[in-house]
Amino acid sequence: MKSSLKIATLVLAFAGLSFAAKAQTTTTTTSTTTNGGIRYSIGVDAGIPTGGFKNSHNWNLGGSAQADIPVANQLFVTVNAGYNNIFGKSDFKGIAGNDVADVKLIPVKAGLKFFPVQNFYVQGEAGASFLLNKKDTYNDKAVAFVYAPQVGVQFPVSASGNFIDAGVRYEATTKFNKAIDDSKVQFVSLRLAYGF
């Protein structure tokens, strides 16, 4: 909980600094911040576990598809679905053959993406994360609440409106096993996506 509070504080600090910077400059809008219609992106996600979850898992790799739906100038509603595989440690606690099972998740989230200054965004999403291998991981729930604050940069790569989206996010779930605190999945991840 303490680390998620720190991350939330950092995101709010970035947002505050961005608003202050916007008040001092004149922004030229681009296709990344205006209401040009729904934008789609497909990306690769990679990261490292945090909190107690890092004791049993090494890193994660996955992918996601996202739609950004314009609702106001520089403000979008996001819908995101993906897949994350968090790789378990081999020979856990130094015991040969004591391998921790990978955690396989399908997170489905919705939220808001706001561009306080040109090409820089702050995004927050929440939803449900579906555990595909509940029995392998000895959990008693297959669905948990997930939330993911993110900051990133989005910049155009063509005149037709295509763009690259690079963001860093913290993603965390509630417990998949009510009796085990470390059944909360927590990680910091980089998403690198191509948008159109």
Rank of each mutant, 00 (worst) to 15 (best):
D68L: 14
D68Y: 13
D68E: 13
D68H: 14
I69R: 04
I69D: 01
P70T: 02
V71L: 04
V71D: 03
V71W: 05
A72N: 09
N73H: 12
N73L: 14
Q74A: 15
Q74V: 08
L75P: 02
V77Y: 06
T78N: 04
N80K: 11
N80F: 02
A81L: 05
Y83C: 02
N84D: 12
N84P: 08
N85Y: 12
N85P: 07
I86C: 07
I86Y: 13
G88H: 11
G88M: 10
G88E: 10
K89R: 13
D91T: 07
D91V: 06
D91M: 06
F92C: 09
G94T: 04
I95S: 09
I95N: 12
A96C: 07
A96D: 15
A96W: 09
G97N: 12
G97F: 15
G97H: 14
N98I: 11
D99F: 11
D99R: 11
D102G: 15
D102Q: 14
V103K: 11
K104N: 12
K104A: 06
L105I: 10
I106F: 05
I106S: 06
I106L: 08
V108A: 10
K109F: 11
A110H: 05
G111N: 01
K113D: 00
F114D: 03
F115A: 04
P116T: 05
V117L: 09
N119P: 04
F120P: 02
F120H: 02
Y121E: 00
V122D: 07
Q123P: 06
Q123H: 09
G124L: 07
E125T: 14
E125S: 12
E125L: 10
A126N: 04
A126S: 08
G127D: 01
A128Y: 15
S129G: 09
F130Q: 08
L131D: 10
L131M: 14
L132G: 06
L132D: 05
N133C: 08
K134N: 10
K135H: 10
D136F: 07
D136C: 08
D136G: 11
T137N: 13
Y138A: 12
Y138N: 13
Y138P: 00
N139K: 02
N139A: 07
K141R: 13
A142E: 14
A142M: 10
V143F: 06
V143R: 12
V143G: 04
V143E: 08
A144G: 06
A144W: 05
F145P: 00
Y147D: 03
A148T: 09
A148S: 12
P149I: 02
V153L: 15
V153S: 01
Q154R: 13
F155G: 00
V157A: 01
V157T: 01
V157L: 00
V157N: 05
S158Q: 03
S158V: 02
A159C: 00
S160Y: 09
F163Y: 07
F163L: 00
I164C: 08
I164A: 10
I164W: 15
D165F: 03
D165R: 00
G167Y: 03
G167C: 03
G167F: 01
V168C: 00
V168K: 03
R169N: 13
Y170E: 01
Y170A: 01
E171Y: 05
E171D: 05
E171L: 08
